[in-house]
Amino acid sequence: MLDSLPLILSFLMAGVPPTVLATVGGIALTVVLSAVAGLALVSRHRAVRAVSRVYVEFFRGTSEVVQLFWIFFVLPALVGYQIIPLGAGILVLGLNHGAYGAEIVRGAVRAVPRAQHEGAVALSLSPWDRMRRVVLPQAVVEMLPPFTNLFIQLLKSTALLSLVVVDEVVRRGQLLVPNLGVGEKLTIYLVELVIYLVLALLITAGMRLLERRAAARVGRVPATGVAT
């Protein structure tokens, strides 16, 4: 078991860059979609809220695996353009987790005390300036802890990309498993667990730093809960 560890570790580590790239790309798309859809959910315009609600409920209510298959296998047959596996994975990760993130944004914006809105109105700030200078800085502090959990969940969801043959950590492990003994299989799965744990801890550390900075900007003390 220990004799095979260096070989297994080096083979699985080759899958870390695609896993990280899918995670970073998925997080970037998630942030954009969460912000757009979340703010649309609190819009004064019913049509805007309705469109955003359809997006949120569709991607929250359907299987992430089926979404991946649709984008990678079905969509190219309909439009005549094949998306690369990693691109399809990033798109699904962003669309799916962006739907959950939209509710985080909506809840955080709604959580800003009404007195803050009224004070901004009293200062004759435009709706955009009220959102940008008063509401969002306070809402961001509320958003970051649940976004930490969401990003960790997104990281773990990158394992789905093995279904479209992206050469990430789980896919690399699948290539090693056949014809190995029980000891080597246990080592593979243990190393995979450790890799995901380390990446999750890095995300948590980065988000904790953002939480402290965001809280300091609005004169708050950040929460000290542990993300799961």
Rank of each mutant, 00 (worst) to 15 (best):
A22H: 09
V79Q: 00
V54C: 03
L78M: 06
K156D: 10
R106T: 00
V141A: 03
V112D: 00
G98C: 06
V105P: 00
R213N: 14
L41P: 06
L155I: 05
A37F: 11
R208G: 11
V20E: 09
I203Q: 08
R49W: 12
V54Y: 02
G181D: 13
A77I: 08
L161R: 05
V92Q: 07
T19H: 06
V51E: 01
L180T: 08
R217M: 10
I152A: 01
M131V: 06
T224H: 11
L5D: 07
T228I: 09
L12F: 03
L75R: 00
V66L: 12
A159Y: 01
V109G: 00
A88Y: 05
N149E: 03
I8C: 07
G219Q: 14
K185T: 15
V66M: 06
I203E: 15
F69L: 13
L176W: 15
I8R: 10
V169M: 04
V140K: 03
A47S: 05
G101T: 04
A35L: 15
M143N: 01
L190S: 15
V226F: 12
A122P: 05
V36Y: 05
F147I: 04
G89E: 04
A88Q: 14
Y55A: 00
L12N: 01
L193P: 14
T62P: 00
